[in-house]
Design a protein around this nucleic acid. Structure first.
Length: 578
RNA sequence: CGGGACGUAGCUCAGCCCGGUAGAGCGCUUGGUUUGGGGCCAAGACGUCGCAGGUUCAAAUCCUGUCGUCCCGACCA
């Protein structure tokens, strides 16, 4: 491959609409160009890197027993109505109509399609287990596309779906995918690690996300240094907050006292009231599937909205408006509480941390008043207890007791054990060995290819540009003759190396541009080829060429040894990523 | 959808407050020079100042609306 025969529009300056480094590098290195917000064209170098990731995924999926298929991106809205996600996933669904006014959806994922296939084709226990996968473009009406490929309206995903006849079988399938994912990200040169995850709208009961640590990531991961525990903050739990919740109340009845103008936990914690936040009960009003509900949290805790959805089973949850709050409790935010004047048809959810709490202070549901001496068990009608709180750094790990840490990360893969959620709705059943009809047990497993590509850049870069791992680099080697005239010695030596390396199966590009050395050096570093070979008169005079690994020092090698050295560099580097 | 910022040459940006001739650097074209880290000299091409309306003798500049982009929140691979 010759540089002048492809298209690598590098940029010296940083485009102003790219905020994070990996996005800037995607643009500057000429890997992609934006069509419009959330939609990108892949240029040759970006496409090559993407294809390499795709091949790694394909190889590992096949090795793990996956069967490649390709499903339609355009789907009838009926199957979405049948699964119930026409409503629950409504905000990400692109809907379109054909000339007959029939409605279609552009698939944001393919559970409905694959389950329909399984329902029609997998009818006997003899046909299981099965794991179908595809690499395909997904469409999501993202509320806010951002960070280049990280969150786009259209993106490429590998999605796999397993079908088993039993829960144990499904667990084994899950485990196989989990292991395959570990290998895939390792081979891509990515430091990714699995964390326990919330299942969100996809549903199911067991899930891990594969996370790439990065300051620019959109997720927060709670983890324990010893490696015993790691979870998405949406799911994370701990041994609880410190200090612990008071349980030594006086036993006196709730006592109303005036708190004019005190409408926050902080204000009540300050003088003159001086009620510590952990001795307060925070009362939140949420609208769960259009019904108001109270959420009681300890004063110093934050509500975890993912847990709220998961624990209440609500499809939609939003904070109530001030008007809705007044209509429900008769008081304004800042004076709310669960002890008095709570209508009987309003559910009261309380965080586990409040169990057995005594001597607490909370709003009186009368503007300007709070209550002392509140005891959860005695004074508040709790309909449901659950863990609703956001874990904080420093709390003790549930497994090891060590202090938990929190860091940001990019989610590149997600594995779910789905159970029978989709197979029931879409009638995927089979005849068991004993002649009974049973429902298939499913799992689904996604990897965002385009996001993975950008995550690699986010993790593998320096001040000069991208530092591709050999396994996903658009080209492994960049031959750089410093004189490109056809008869010049640098050009001839470079051409000979090109032939030898290509014959050895090395993926090489020759920078045949008639540019000054500085320009070629800068560009090759920006695009990030793992190895550059400088072929210039200066070193040729000594019978040498130079090997310049992207992340290491320049090494002179004899011309006759060059090909073998380069091949050795590539093969050993690739072996380290196998 | 809520909050904030910004739309001027292919890119990065100045000009806008205080209305009157549209600018710089990079890139591009041509010629020369240079040839191991985005070099230098000279000559050029490139703009309906996002769009629409308004105010005004006159609008990139002031006003209104609109579209688009980016950032912060809720959603996800």
């Amino acid at each position: 491959m010759y540089w002048t025969q492809t298209f690598i529009p590098t940029l010296k300056e940083t485009p102003s609409d790219a905020e994070i480094v990996s996005h800037q590098l995607l643009l500057r290195a000429g890997l992609v160009r934006k069509l419009t917000g959330g939609l990108y064209t892949f240029l040759p170098m970006g496409l090559r890197a993407l294809r390499k990731i795709e091949q790694i995924i394909r190889q590992e999926m096949n090795r793990a027993g996956g069967i490649e298929v390709l499903m339609p991106a355009l789907q009838p809205s009926e199957i979405w109505k049948q699964s119930g996600r026409y409503e629950t996933a409504a905000d990400v669904l692109y809907k379109i109509r054909d000339r007959a006014r029939k409605e279609w959806v552009l698939g944001p994922t393919h559970e409905e399609v694959i389950t329909t296939l399984a329902a029609n084709e997998l009818n006997s226990y003899r046909q299981f287990p099965r794991n179908f996968y595809q690499i395909q473009t997904k469409f999501r009406d993202e509320i806010r596309p951002r960070f280049g490929l990280m969150r786009a309206k259209e993106f490429i995903m590998k999605d796999a779906y397993s079908f088993d006849t039993s829960d144990e079988g499904a667990m084994a399938s899950y485990r196989r995918m989990y292991d395959a994912y570990t290998r895939i990200f390792f081979r891509c040169g990515l430091k990714a690690f699995p964390v326990e995850a919330d299942t969100g709208v996809i549903g199911g009961n067991h899930s891990h996300e594969f996370m790439v640590p990065a300051e620019t990531g959109e997720n927060e991961v709670v983890y324990c240094e010893s490696g015993g525990y790691a979870a998405n903050i949406e799911k994370a739990t701990s041994r609880g907050p410190s200090p612990s919740t008071p349980t030594d109340g006086t036993g006196d009845s709730p006592e109303k006292f005036p708190t004019p103008g005190v409408v926050s936990i902080e204000a009540l914690a300050a003088a003159p009231h001086s009620v510590p936040a952990h001795a307060q009960i925070k009362t939140l009003v949420y609208i769960l599937d259009s019904k108001p509900a109270l959420i009681l949290m300890r004063g110093d805790d934050q509500l975890n909205s993912a847990k709220l959805l998961a624990k209440t089973g609500a499809i939609q949850a939003r904070p109530a408006t001030v008007d809705e709050i007044v209509a429900t409790l008769g008081a304004h935010p800042g004076s709310l509480g669960g002890a008095h004047n709570v209508p009987h048809d309003v559910s009261v959810y309380a965080d586990e941390v409040l169990r057995g709490a005594r001597g607490m202070t909370t709003g009186a549901n009368v503007d300007g008043f709070h209550l002392h001496n509140v005891e959860m068990d005695r004074d508040i009608r709790v309909s449901h207890w659950a863990d609703f709180r956001m874990v904080r750094a420093g709390e003790q790990c549930v497994e090891t007791g060590e202090a938990l840490k929190i860091r940001r990360a990019i989610e590149v893969g997600h594995v779910f054990k789905l159970g029978t959620k989709y197979s029931e709705k879409l009638n995927s059943t089979f005849l068991a060995e004993d002649g009974s009809r049973q429902t298939t047990v499913m799992g689904c497993y996604g990897i965002g290819l385009t996001r993975t590509l950008q995550a690699v850049i986010e993790q593998c870069k320096d001040k000069d540009g991208i530092c591709w791992p050999l396994s996903v680099a658009p080209h492994q080697v960049c031959l750089t003759p410093l004189n490109v005239a056809p008869e010049s010695q640098p050009r001839q030596v470079a051409e000979k190396l090109l032939m030898e390396l290509t014959a050895a199966g090395i993926d090489v590009i020759l920078d045949d541009r008639d540019e000054r050395p500085g320009v070629k050096f800068k560009d090759s570093e920006l695009v990030g080829f793992p190895l550059r070979v400088n072929v210039g008169e200066k070193s040729l005079a000594k019978g040498e060429v130079e090997l310049k690994p992207r992340t290491g020092p320049t090494q002179p090698v004899k011309i006759d040894d060059a090909a073998a050295q380069i091949i050795g560099f590539v093969r050993s580097g690739m072996a380290a990523l196998a």
